[in-house]
Structure formats: structure tokens, C-alpha cells
């Protein structure tokens, strides 16, 4: 016997899959953005929704993935979809390095630190990672190593890795089974296939021992620790997993846009990802997807009010916390079958 909720999801998925047939290119492209944000939201949901770690710097990991893809693709012509695991790995490693010393911080402090990390990454990208040593340090180094070191200074100052504020362009289109993916409809199926894959995997994760442990330490850190859950290990693991997923999404974003620049990864991107979880229903997969539609899709429908949209988001966040702090579609209670 199928639950009515499940029926609704299936009907909506079928409508969504068929939508490129009756929507024009522009709206298909909007749905592509919704899909990307849905994946990002789901990855952040593991951290924020399931584990209760406030991460407001998720765009940093998204950026690391996107830049990894863009750099390796434009420098070494590696097909971009092959780079998905590399992007996940680089974002995950970066997250592990960042999170290791700070993961024990309490909610709001962690939130501030992740904002700081996001800003540092953005500033680093704008500065092209170039290292301009101050004159006095140069002076000391020249005295120690002689004038030969000037070449090294020169090299450090002219590192062109991230392309500065202009970013990287000329990223190649992805190919899948010999087909070059270029039209929005083609991207639509690629992106929404990945959304479906993410939903499937994260649903399994949610039901697993790992997922239960995360919920436990979200609800009561101390009790979880007392029951033998290595809380900092789990927190770190979920942080790295979420970041790696965002990194892989960054790859798809780079492939879709073919141009990436630091302002695509500003603090507001992190806020949108965070808000869509809170509004949709934190810890709930359908909630997060609904949140992505509301925050990314809905503003497109009201383009006339584009300026006021963040105003409405802000007010909605406050209102939601006051009147329904579990979000629009909160997770259902866990059910376990007894008729076995």
C-alpha cells in the first residue's frame, strides 16, 4: 500500500521530468539552477539539518570544487566530468583541513568561523592566490639567500591560477557517451539525474547507523557521547562529506557556465543554501528540494520584484522561526516496520 505522500512525489517527479517538453529554454535553465541548488542544499542539509552544525560558508567548498574543475580542465584539457571525483576530493580535503581544529565549537561560534572561512576563500580567489611579500621580508630574504631569490619572488607574484576577479573562462563542455552536452535540456537531464542520485544516496545514509548517530548528536551532544558515539569523529565525517558533495556540484556548475568568477561564490550563495534548508524543512529531503524551488525558482517568476526578493527572504526567515521553526515540510518521524 503506497502512502499518499509518496504518490504525490511520484506525480511531481513525472511532471518535472516531462517539463522540458513544454517549457521554453529560459525556464529549463531556471530549473537547472534549481537542481544545482537542490544538490547543494541536500549536501548542506547533512551538516545543518541532520547534524545541527551551523555552516554558513558552504559556498567555499562549492568554489574549491568549481575551481579545481576549471583549472584542471583549462590547463590540462581533462574532460570535465572525469574530474568530478577529483573535485569532491579536493573540496573534501580542504574541508577536513579547515574543520579539524574548529569542529568542536558550539553552534553559533562555528557559524561565525565558517563565514570567516568563506570570506577568506573568496578573498584568496580574487587575489589570484598570488603572494606579494612585503618589502621588508624580501629584504631579509635577499640578505640571506642572495639576489637569486628575486626570480622566486617574481614567480610568486605572477602566479595565475584562479584568474583573479575575472575568474576562469573557456571551460570545455562536458561530453557523455560521445554526446556533447550543451543545450539547457541536455543539462536538465544531467543535473536532475544527479539530484535523483543524491536523493537516493542521502536517503540511504539517513536511514543508516551513520544517519541515526548524526541525529542523535544533533539532539543531544552529551548523551550521544555518553552512548559511545565519537561525536567529533562523526561531525568531522559529515562535514567533509557535505563539502565533498558541494565540490562535485561545483564541477557541474563550472561545466554548465563555462565561466566561473569569485562573485559566484559570495557569502550570499551560502546564505541562499542555508535559507532554503531552514525554510523548506531542515533534515528533510523533500523539504530541501521544495526550498530550492521556493528560493531559486520563485524569484524568477517575480522578476519585477527582483530587488525586494532578499527583503522577503529575510522577513520569511524571521517569520518562519517564530511561527513554524521546523520549516514547511519537516521530516517525518522515523518508522520501523514491525510485521517482519
Amino acid at each position: 500500500m503506497m502512502k499518499p505522500r509518496m504518490m504525490i512525489y511520484i506525480v511531481l517527479s513525472v511532471i518535472l521530468l516531462g517539463s522540458p517538453l513544454f517549457l521554453d529554454t529560459y525556464w529549463v535553465d531556471v530549473l537547472n539552477s534549481v537542481g544545482l541548488y537542490a544538490i547543494l542544499g541536500l549536501s548542506l542539509n547533512l551538516i545543518v539539518g541532520h547534524t545541527g552544525l551551523f555552516n554558513l560558508g558552504h559556498a567555499a567548498f562549492y568554489a574549491v570544487g568549481a575551481y579545481t574543475a576549471a583549472i584542471l580542465n583549462t590547463r590540462f584539457q581533462i574532460p570535465i566530468l572525469w574530474l568530478i571525483p577529483v573535485c569532491g576530493l579536493s573540496a573534501g580535503l580542504f574541508a577536513a583541513m579547515i574543520a579539524r581544529p574548529i569542529i568542536h565549537l558550539r553552534g553559533d561560534y562555528l557559524c561565525i568561523v565558517t563565514i570567516g572561512v568563506g570570506e577568506i576563500v573568496r578573498i584568496a580567489l580574487i587575489n589570484d592566490l598570488s603572494i606579494h611579500l612585503p618589502a621588508w621580508i624580501k629584504g631579509i630574504l635577499i640578505r640571506i639567500f642572495g639576489l637569486g631569490i628575486l626570480d622566486i619572488f617574481n614567480m610568486l607574484e605572477h602566479l595565475v591560477i584562479t584568474g583573479g576577479a575575472n575568474g576562469i573562462f573557456g571551460i570545455s563542455r562536458p561530453t557523455l557517451f560521445g554526446l556533447i552536452i550543451r543545450k539547457p535540456e541536455q543539462f536538465f537531464y544531467l543535473i536532475w539525474f544527479l539530484v535523483a542520485l543524491t536523493v537516493f544516496l542521502f536517503d540511504q545514509l539517513e536511514k543508516s547507523r551513520f544517519g541515526r548517530a548524526l541525529n542523535y548528536l544533533r539532539d543531544d551532544d552529551v548523551a550521544a557521547e555518553g552512548s559511545g558515539i565519537d561525536t567529533s569523529h562523526y561531525k568531522l565525517a559529515v562535514f567533509v562529506l557535505g563539502a565533498a558533495w558541494a565540490g562535485m556540484t561545483g564541477n557541474i556548475f563550472a561545466a554548465k557556465m563555462t565561466i566561473i568568477a569569485p562573485e559566484s561564490f559570495s557569502f550570499w550563495e551560502s546564505v541562499v543554501m542555508f535559507t532554503l534548508i531552514i525554510l523548506g524543512g531542515s533534515g528533510s529531503i523533500p523539504g530541501v528540494i521544495l526550498g530550492a524551488f521556493l528560493l531559486v525558482g520563485l524569484p524568477e517568476a517575480f522578476r519585477g520584484f527582483a530587488n525586494a526578493r532578499m527583503l522577503v527572504f529575510g522577513a520569511a526567515m524571521v517569520g518562519m522561526m517564530i511561527f513554524r521553526n521546523q520549516g514547511i515540510l519537516p521530516p517525518l518521524p522515523r518508522t520501523f516496520s514491525v510485521d517482519r
Binding site: L311, G314, M321, I322
Partner: peptide, 27 residues
């Protein structure tokens, strides 16, 4: 209204208020 709620609800509300005020100034 959030005095009795979990602390993190108030943090989200604060973020929302920040976004609201910033965009109000912009408008």
C-alpha cells in the same frame, strides 16, 4: 517571540533580520 525557543532558532531569526534590514536600506 523566540526567548523560549531553541537557541539556534534565534540565530536564524537574527540572520533573517540582518538580510531584511540590509535590503531595506538598499531599497
Amino acid at each position: 517571540p523566540l526567548r523560549e525557543s531553541p537557541r539556534l532558532s534565534a540565530v536564524v531569526s537574527a540572520l533573517g533580520a540582518s538580510i531584511f534590514l540590509q535590503n531595506m536600506v538598499m531599497l
